[in-house]
Simulated assay, not measured.
Amino acid sequence: MIGKRRAYEELLVVEARTGDRSAIEALVRLRGPRLLVHATRLLGDRDQAQDAVQEAWVEILRGLPGLRAAAAFPAWSTQIVTRRCVRIIKGLQKGRALAAELTPLIETEQPEPDDEAARLRWAIDQLPAEQAATIALFYLEDMRLTEVAIALDIPQGTVKSRLSKARGALRALLEGEGDDHEIH
């Protein structure tokens, strides 16, 4: 299924390069939701994420003719969204730091033990944004280490480190130890 989806996406990229409007629309429908989820993980705010993704699509479509390999599109487009999110975060950093100091921690309720997928999504949501984004791209988006590094605009060693930390934190959360340990 993933192979077929990637092949279809590559075909859309090739057709979109020629200006094929229907291919562009299909590409936005196919990749857009994934980019929005990624931006939401990074920003923690769906409205800001929608703005970031919308602005990123302008850049993506402008840069599409220069993209050398259609297979690179998922990582390349995610990298553009990541950079947009970084700009937003930098602009809001001071305000967020103050808000974080003033806002009490809100505990979320863990889902029922028999719903593994819901428990995993809950656990990923508990991770720091950079770990959640890294683990989601690697496991949920099925990107290779090099693709995750490109998508997040970080060195491959940092990807490995974040994956290791995220796996440990997920293990602790899913085994019930997350209640006693702060996750960083």
Rank of each mutant, 00 (worst) to 15 (best):
M1N: 09
M1K: 03
I2M: 04
G3V: 00
G3F: 01
G3Y: 01
R5K: 05
R6T: 02
R6L: 11
Y8A: 15
Y8K: 10
L12H: 11
L12T: 06
L12S: 14
V14H: 10
A16R: 00
T18Y: 09
T18S: 14
G19P: 07
A26D: 10
L27N: 08
R29M: 09
P33C: 11
L35H: 04
L35M: 13
A39V: 01
R41N: 05
L42F: 01
R46K: 12
A52V: 04
W57G: 12
I60D: 02
R68H: 06
R68L: 14
P74E: 04
T82E: 06
R83T: 09
G91N: 08
L92C: 11
K94V: 00
K94F: 00
G95V: 00
T103R: 08
T103K: 09
L105F: 12
Q110M: 11
P111K: 02
P113V: 05
R121K: 13
W122A: 04
D125G: 15
L127G: 12
T134V: 01
T134L: 04
I135P: 12
Y139K: 11
E141A: 15
E141N: 13
R144P: 09
L145W: 03
T146P: 06
T146K: 07
T146H: 09
E147F: 10
I150P: 04
I150C: 08
A151H: 04
D153M: 08
P155D: 05
Q156R: 15
R162F: 11
R162S: 07
A166V: 02
A166T: 02
A166Q: 03
L170N: 01
L173F: 11
L173Q: 06
L174F: 03
E175H: 13
E175R: 10
D179V: 06
I183N: 05
